[in-house]
Amino acid sequence: MRAAVVRNEAVMNEPAADAIVEVRGISKTYGGVEALRDVDLDFPRGKLTSLLGPSGCGKTTLLKIIAGLIDADRGTVAVNGKKVSAPGPERAFVFQDFALLPWATVLRNVAFGLELRGTAKEEREAIARRYVADVGLAGFEDKYPHELSGGMRQRVGLARALCVDADVLLLDEPFSAVDEQNRRKFQEDLIRLRTNQNKTFIFVTHSIEEAVYISDRIVLLSPRPGRVSRIIEPDIDRSGDPDRIHRDKHYLDTVEEIWQGLKQYVE
């Protein structure tokens, strides 16, 4: 039995039953380098979809185009059926380098998205406190970013994104600047948060294990030019002990299968 359902291109272009983000014909060229060519993708509501691929496959570019932070050369992005070309309240971004204000406390950093929207101080701080606790940082509200570890800083970044109550969370390699032990713990927490929050996650990573461990759906991108090569839906039960997943047969087979597919792109 195959561990994953592998779809071919024809199936891929078919609209999913309930797609919250629809990407159509996106192309992007950076100074002569073709980062993305004609990408069509649907992101199902309430799922965690990973964009996985070697460096240079345009996965971060695609995420930033969805976020409205980069303009595509061609193609459209629609969220909840509406075309978007700039950042909007229904999407929130989590940054690879955290992008925390060094001069602001954890609480103000978490509330910063709401602060920019003009939410009153008491209201936004009340909301922020809740999410600070949700990501496991209760008690650290008055600390400054430089007093936190990398993993804790990214929890602040995640709480900030949760705070603005967006439908879609866009995470750009959020764990790449976090050490291995913290990353494992954080991945477990992310699985838990995803069940509780009922949001759609789009997750960029270059780690096969990470993608398989946390994703409902993995989009494999091939580099130069960046295109969708495969979509994999790992069939892994995440309800039990998180440590068990790492020894799960389906998990290991899927990781191996993706590696075999990606191998050709690695020099």
Partner: peptide, 19 residues
Amino acid sequence: SLLVMSRSFMGTRWQEVFK
């Protein structure tokens, strides 16, 4: 990267400058 963050949360130009 802080400027991009501000843009992603729809900060205005003035907010960008002062915050």
